[in-house]
Nucleic acid binder design. Structure first.
Lengths: 352, 352
DNA sequence: TTGAAAGCGTTACCAG
DNA sequence: CTGGTAACGCTTTCAA
């Protein structure tokens, strides 16, 4: 009654080691290899009889065209690289799913590259090029030399939520500045005077844009005295930041502008739990992103939501266009964020 | 002064259309193509002189070995498929990053496949096989025929957080049952009598295991009267579920066991905001997963955290082992979750 | 419509 | 250590 280790149910007798090739199928079907190839193509020219014989043979052998070999001859791997930094993924997990889903509708697969920090990108570029991807979507900034490297290889690049202002590149992003300016103007119009900003990590261009956008608008409104403390986009750093603000200001700020929702939530908790403050009566707190937890009843953040669905759709279609027509000129698409008025801040429009 | 559209900075004169091949490098360096190939390999045999000339020629041409062609001849694509369902990614975004990072340390790239629902997997399998991946990590269940298909192609598969009990497969998972049993026993020991369960989507095996684990322990404790309502793992569905519980029970349950943290958070908010209940004084609520928001001060969930770091490390090393040694027998690794005692529930151990 | 043969860019095997 | 040559599995002319 001793059994073999390997148990194969449907096709117990097949050797299973070597994959069937188009030659195997051709032989079994009694046709040429080119014929097999044609049957598995879109605009093929094959008689019904031929088609049937090939397909049944293929089925019997479990044949599947080898996409790698195809890529070699057609010079199209049908793979695109998606480069994300840790942050992108953590705070917008749905972006990846959306990108992958949309690409797959076009017969394109996603090769994923992740960066612990945005600076680690050099090695990644090397890999991306070796794998002959047809295009790249990057949520990490490339410098001039890096971008040159990729473009000289003839690979189109789309920047996701970042851009190189000095250069002709393709990019899709959310208007962080506009969003922050709106938040600031709303807060100011509601009478807030003492502001604090919680910025993100130093190597995050998104955080830079948000912080600068807010600062700029504050300056325009002649609000000069602004305290900036920095966090790492995480909850704990939001709590620590609020604590630091209280200490360095020697009191309660009127409004706190956090570079993302998670830190804003941290600020809210620290204000309530540690300092026994009421939000928004004692202090207004706003975030940015519009992530899920921002809508939880306990926080109900006033924030700006990135239209991630439209952004990822735009990125995919821009990239596919450029894969199909390599000559297309660069395009920058900027989406306004959705303005969300929640209960975490007293805004001018709060009671409208 | 008219400029051409294309502006290339570093290497303005290079045609940029066609990528350099090992033959181009060989010609420029005045050596054979095989020599070039050898220089770019690990255990190569090449003299220092040879090496220098090749490398400098390669550099000049911007040559990079074509991983696709290499894969064709070596029968190793150095790519693995990672299949995730929407849910996996949304509630554990870090899993993907960890997997990708760890694989990349071994020179392996991740080809990502996402499923809207776990049932969409058939087409994905077809793609996975066509791309000649060296292995698969799947966070979606395959049925017998599907698994046969992949295994017959000689591709090792690791199941992530699911398993096929009736079959010899490789899997890495968190012990959902054990976790739920602990939660139930803690709740029961604290004196709770009227229980309600909020289950996840019907097609989620993880939800099934959790719900069954809880139910089983409740039965063992002779607590028969348990209401089960179902949600979709989302916040809103958690709120709706709590509402439904109140209605169908005609009063307040002693304890609510949600199949994940996000729904537990929804329950907490609905209990507080809509029903003016105190948590945990009036009702205890527990979740599962140990996601970030579970630790926010406003919720402070009692829950069980999946050790995702260790799990993804285990998955990667198991897969790599099996790619390297195809004969290895199947292995199932089960990790206990970390027990987290928070303020959202009165547990027997709460004051220990 | 079909088949033969020439690549795609690499590695692997052999002589030298 | 080095170079020639045969694969790898496919698509793509080009004749028939």
């Amino acid at each position: 009654m001793a059994n073999h280790v390997k148990l194969a149910k449907g096709n117990a007798d097949r050797p299973a080691r070597k994959r069937a090739t188009s030659y195997d199928v051709a032989e079994l079907a009694g046709v040429s290899q080119s014929a097999v190839s044609r049957v598995f193509q879109a605009g093929a020219s094959a008689s019904k009889d031929m088609r049937d014989r090939v397909l049944s043979a293929a089925n019997k052998l479990g044949y599947r065209p080898n996409a790698i070999a195809r890529g070699l001859i057609t010079q199209r791997s049908n793979m695109v690289a998606v480069v994300i930094s840790r942050q992108t993924n953590l705070y917008y997990p749905e972006v990846l799913v959306q990108l992958t889903q949309r690409f797959s509708e076009h017969g394109i697969r996603v090769l994923l590259f992740t960066l612990e920090h945005e600076r680690d990108i050099d090695g990644v570029i090397e890999q991306v090029l070796q794998y002959q991807v047809d295009g790249v979507i990057t949520a990490a900034i490339l410098n001039d030399a890096q971008l040159d490297t990729v473009e000289n290889a003839g690979i189109p690049v789309i920047f996701y939520n970042r851009t190189l202002p000095e250069r002709l590149v393709n990019s899709v992003r959310c208007d962080q500045e506009e969003g922050e300016r709106w938040l600031v103007s709303q807060l100011a119009a509601a009478g807030h005077k003492r502001f604090a900003i919680v910025s993100g990590p130093d190597d995050s261009s998104v955080s830079m844009e948000r912080t600068q956008g807010a600062l700029q608008k504050l300056r325009e409104l002649s609000i000069a005295d602004v305290l900036i403390v920095s966090g790492d986009y995480g909850y704990a750093s939001g709590r620590a930041a609020f604590s630091e603000i209280m200490q360095r200001m020697g009191g309660v700020p009127d409004a706190v502008i956090a570079a993302n929702d998670v830190m804003a939530i941290g600020c809210v908790d620290e204000a309530r739990e540690t300092n026994y403050l009421r939000v928004p009566e004692d202090v207004s707190i706003v975030g940015f992103d519009g992530v899920g937890p921002a809508r939880y009843a306990a926080y109900d953040l006033s924030t700006v939501r990135q239209p991630v669905g439209r952004m990822s759709e735009a990125a995919v279609s821009m990239l596919i266009e450029r894969i199909e027509s390599p000559g297309l000129s660069p395009e920058k698409r900027v989406f306004s964020g959705d303005r969300i008025i929640g209960g975490s801040a007293l805004l001018a429009d709060s009671n409208s």
